[in-house]
Design a binder for these strands. Structure first.
Lengths: 110, 110
DNA sequence: TACATTTATCGTATATTTGCGATATACAAT
DNA sequence: ATTGTATATCGCAAATATACGATAAATGTA
């Protein structure tokens, strides 16, 4: 019956999976790259580069905002988006802590 | 009409999003953790720990195998799974290359 | 004021993911 | 041979994600 079981897992697992979900679509990876490259950019510039409709890009931006991978500043009709590096750093730290810690100890499996 | 647009993006974007998709569910993060902790483990041990049915766990394991985050060795009735660290290293490298490169140059946005 | 521009949101169609029970498969033990 | 154990797969239902066009909202410009 596909009920949502997310709340059964611990916060670190959810944090990692939430971040991962945000970059689990190539369009969102491409959007992030574009914003990073341009050091902040407006929605229209992204729409021009991607093979997606404006409304779709806007939705992806909303997802990235929700997961706090980007920050946005609405300035008149133009919205400026830029990378929220703090979230990336936090993910990197958690990711490494979560996986690499156990790695050095255990290498003798299948 | 929700047609699949994945093939319109480049390979690096797809590689990152594929890896991310594999860890975009807390159950799969938890499974990876369990395998890492035990240095390889059998399906039954994971089923005991997670709040999910055996068939669901098996499906998640299949996803992780497909994305090559784990390796599996079927040994009689017991299957031994362990982390495929090579994939993690590759992701880390690509991830850092993809995002951190641009970071140092650009910090003066919104 | 009327019109163009930019972005967000709504409604909707389709695709994919998630989850489970039931069942199949493969082997071990009796 | 039969039974038990461990895991994978199938079939289905429900939930979520993806994508687009149409439209709204907000601002700038003629």
């Amino acid at each position: 019956m596909a009920q949502n079981k997310k709340e059964e897992f611990n916060q670190k697992e959810i944090n990692i999976s939430d971040f991962a979900k945000a970059i689990s679509h190539p369009a969102r990876v491409a959007i992030l790259k574009e914003i990073a490259k341009r050091n902040g950019c407006i929605c229209g510039e992204i729409v021009e580069v991607l093979p997606l409709a404006q409304s779709t890009v806007s939705q992806h931006l909303k997802e990235l905002l929700k997961a706090e991978l980007i920050k946005g500043e609405i300035d008149g009709t133009k919205s400026c988006y830029c990378i929220n590096w703090k979230t990336f750093e936090k993910f990197e730290k958690t990711f490494i802590e979560f996986f690499n810690k156990t790695k050095s100890q255990n290498q003798n499996c299948c």
